[in-house]
């Protein structure tokens, strides 16, 4: 079964299965779906503490209290559940408009709405910023509104990828809090390793989930002989290419090498991007999300 545009709210429920779990405990008082640093009521045992320090006689650890030679009463403490803010950092620079076998702008809109949907399911706050080159084209304040996913989908449909560079991404990053946040960085990563390095450094120490939108056809142009007038959608510069088998092989090899260089930068930061090639497979995405080191 495949799912195609027009995107509508009906399809978004498919993203309900997406879930994320951070490796570290989060501070915070609001109750949510994530392990908090606070001790309190919960299902996951944390430690024991003297009753005096933690006066919760309902969770008296009887065994420990009885066996204690000094007769200290101990209570069991559990990790409190807390919520977090899911921030969708969308890189909507003009390069996203280039399309071969993937409608990457469509993928980005769908992903943004899907994550908003999943965040609502997971009782997390959801915020978004669409960064187009030098300016932030749209900013969605953190909220738990029920219709956020649909709203986001509609808003983004009215916008277009444009602009060049990473200035807006850096600017949006600077405004993000450093605690209780998960940044989902959705981009085509048509960047130099240095630019990626810059973005990832700016995002530290926040947990980041990079989602890499790839277009296989752009990465591996067909070897058919012909003339191509390639235009960079960001700079508008044009260059004629003489396409042939060797040329195609060279382009593909260069694209592979560029991806390898970017992956190396990701692993330097302890990250492994979730790569989406051409289309989204939700189950696959959920699995990858589970594995992702957050």
């Amino acid at each position: 079964m495949s799912f195609d545009a027009p995107l509508d709210a009906a399809g978004l429920h498919l993203f309900d299965v997406l879930a994320w779990r951070l490796a570290r405990a989060l501070p915070g008082l609001r109750s949510g779906g994530h392990l908090g640093r606070m001790r309190g009521a919960g299902e996951i045992f944390a430690d024991v503490a003297p009753l005096l320090a933690h006066p919760d006689p309902r969770r008296l650890d009887l065994r420990r209290s009885i066996s204690d030679p000094f007769g200290t009463l101990s209570t069991r403490r559990f990790q409190a559940r807390t919520d977090l803010r899911l921030h969708l950092l969308l890189d909507g620079s003009a390069s996203l408009a280039a399309s071969g076998s993937a409608d990457r702008w469509g993928l980005m809109r769908l992903l943004a709405a899907g994550f908003a949907q999943a965040a609502r399911r997971g009782q997390d706050l959801c915020a978004a910023s669409l960064c187009c080159g030098a300016g932030i084209a749209h900013q969605e304040p953190p909220s738990r509104r029920p219709g956020l996913a649909q709203e986001l989908l509609a808003t983004l449909s009215g916008l277009h990828p444009q602009g060049r560079g990473i200035d807006a991404l850096l600017a949006a990053t600077a405004e993000l809090p450093t605690e209780r946040i998960l940044v989902v960085l959705v981009s085509d990563f048509e960047l130099t390793p240095a630019e990626l390095q810059q973005i990832l450094t700016a995002l530290r120490p926040r947990p980041v989930l990079p989602i890499w939108l790839r277009d296989r056809a752009l990465e591996q142009p067909a070897p058919r002989f012909g003339l191509i007038d390639a235009q960079d959608p960001e700079t508008g510069r044009r260059r004629t290419q003489l396409a042939a088998r060797r040329w195609a092989a060279r382009q593909a090899a260069a694209a592979t090498a560029a991806r390898a260089a970017l992956r190396a930068v990701f692993s330097e930061h302890g990250l492994r991007p979730v790569e989406i090639a051409d289309s989204i497979e939700v189950a696959e995405l959920a699995a990858r999300l589970d594995e992702a080191p957050l």
Partner: peptide, 11 residues
């Protein structure tokens, strides 16, 4: 028109 920078559609 100059460069289709803002094109969301294909060129």
């Amino acid at each position: 028109a100059p460069a289709p920078r803002s094109a969301g559609k294909e060129i």
